[in-house]
Design a protein around this nucleic acid. Structure first.
Lengths: 218, 218, 218, 218
DNA sequence: CATGAATGAGGTTTCATTCAT
DNA sequence: TATGAATGAAACCTCATTCAT
């Protein structure tokens, strides 16, 4: 699903240790990247943030770009895991409930990782073209789950949607907006308000138009 | 409107020439930035793209960051000019027509400058905090105009909108999406299709709900 | 005494190593500065003279000017240390002996570091105004010690001096002259001759004039 | 006397104009050199100080070093001219009067051109070895005249001097000191005081020791 | 004669990466 | 395993000098 996990050179043979260190590296590197940007971050900054030496950092990573890849990979994996779990939960729900759950879940994630989201925008541009795939794949996965929900809703006549793909896109993208435009939005709305308003707007946009007359009891 | 234009050192006193050269620098630099990213672009790359020497580049700009600023400033100015003109045009139109015009205009701009739009995402992160303002100001300006249109529509009962600001935001952001997600969207839709679908989705979302029954003759 | 030691950025935290490397840098840099002048000396020249890489040089120094400062600081410190020791030695001596010792010491230092002395002339001009202080302070220290000796001599009637400060100045300056004018002096005198002649001239100038008649048996 | 005047390329054939311009260049360049040092002064600084364009500057000078040479040459010429005139004046005077006149003259020159004198210290180091000659020649000329005076005084028994050359040197050098050490001296003495004190010290040092008894007729 | 736009060699500084300990 | 001193390629920037106008 995630595509090939590119092999990253390591000097250690203790896989346990390697993945534990890399976990640490990812967590710390993200923070520094978010704060200073990838390019302005030096390997020594990353090492210091991890509390290890530059030399040791190079035991678990062969170059700076590897760190970026690890971050991207981690993000993608996290997304897929998160949405995978969500998918399970939603299976039993009605389309509308599932959608509400989906929105609440995703928008919350965005809210909780605002700074990170902003950095994600740059991530794709920084990665070599080949490595971008893992990000795209994760995105696509999140979209598919949303699309499934929408599809079920369309089938059950709870939703009326012209174009599933684009609708799913719109719903997702407007979630990200909370992070991208927080310099504007956070001054005017709390996250709760934003979530409510967007949720209602989404529902309104896909709720069947009342051809008969008994439309939406809001 | 755009805030203070930061002064950039130049060695020439011929203002005409300076602004002409800077125009050239901005135009060429954007292309290289878009292609390679800001950090991977060397001053000599920019100079070569302009067809001038590194030395001459430094006659019109005091450091690499100045180039970035010029690009941002140019973008902001262009946005403001473009939307200013649009505003004039829309004044006489009905809210719906104005909105349609607005959408067509903005989405077209995004489409025509796709690569540039992608770079713009990084621009804010690259600029020192103080200089970001000019980008925000431009964005805010585009929003205001859209909000005016929506407001007129609400007054005239052509639109029914819960939250003007967020609706305006949504409309704008979904335009950008065409550039941000073109790796996904462009495979499935032509620009024309995308524009049509989003336009309809927007209208549908703000069209007054049929309180009676004669709702959507689509 | 020397005023504040300006902090110089280093990447190493091993103080021992830092000061050892800086010692090395100062010693080598002086030689190159003396030979080629500060401005014509490139950082890579200094690095090569030290037998280290340009990069490592920047571990112990943040810019070229820092090297200059280190040199000046070292010189000032050396001066103060040298004259401090001299002061101790002279305490027990008679004023005349102390003066002779002082002259011999200082003129010898100048002789042994001729090239360096010539460079010192430029040093003050090269340093940013604030950093010149350390040189002035060192000079002032050397002067004070000389003045003390002269004062003792005046009290004991061994010397007869109109203006202590200026006399001390004169004695000092004529020592430097050996370095400044070596293009002229070294062709006509050996250092020993010069030292003798100047010593006699100095003594003669401050020896009490025979108000009676029993003056100088030269 | 001054050695060969090195030929400096010019594009102009109007000798009158050339020497007039060079006069201007020397006068202005000195000021900038004194203020900022030779190396930190850019050709454009010199041009601006002269009120001409960089291009025109290069009509009268072929490179930056030429400017330095012109300055040195001018200084040497001025020295020689000044001391030449002095020599004439002194011819008729008694040795003592001549010496007093000499001292007054030279110390005054130093006082009037303090900043310049400080720069002169660097000049020799900046000039290519060959060009230093003109400075040395000028110095030697000033020395010779002083020596002549001293010699006459020795012959007439007005002075009693062990070593003519070194004494002359000492007298000259202590004049320069007023400029070199003005950061120290000017705080404690006016120029007049300094001149008086040094004059007396000099006279005292060369005044015949009273083997008889008739010592100081001051 | 006069200008200042244009060039590019060369210096300073940074930092990813290596390697001896 | 862990360190951080050491390297050097490569980027930024300056400024003496040229030359078209």
């Amino acid at each position: 699903m995630t595509g090939t996990t590119r092999e990253i050179r390591t000097f250690s043979e203790d896989e346990e240790l390697v993945s534990q260190r890399r976990r640490q590296i990812v967590d710390c590197a993200i923070q520094v990247f978010v704060r200073n940007g990838y390019q302005k971050t030096r390997m020594s900054d990353i090492a210091r943030a991890c509390g290890i030496s530059k030399g040791l950092l190079y035991h678990y990573v062969s170059c700076k770009e590897d760190v970026l890849y690890l971050v991207a990979h981690d993000q993608a994996e996290g997304t897929i895991k998160g949405f995978g779990a969500l998918q399970e939960q939603c299976k039993e729900m009605s389309p509308t409930d599932a959608l509400l759950e989906y929105i609440r879940f995703y928008y919350k994630v965005v809210h909780d990782t605002q700074d990170y989201q902003v950095f994600l925008n740059q991530l794709a541009a920084l990665l070599p073209r080949a490595d971008r795939r893992i990000l795209f794949d994760a995105d696509r996965f999140a979209l598919e789950i949303l699309q499934e929900i929408l599809e079920r809703g369309v089938k059950s006549r709870e939703f009326e949607i012209e174009d599933l793909t684009i609708t799913a896109h719109n719903i997702l993208l407007l979630g990200r907006t909370w992070a991208d435009r927080r310099w504007f939005l956070a001054r005017r709305y709390t996250f709760g308000q934003y979530l409510d308003i967007q949720t209602r707007a989404i529902l309104r946009a896909i709720r069947p138009q009342a051809p008969a007359g008994t439309a939406g009891a809001d």
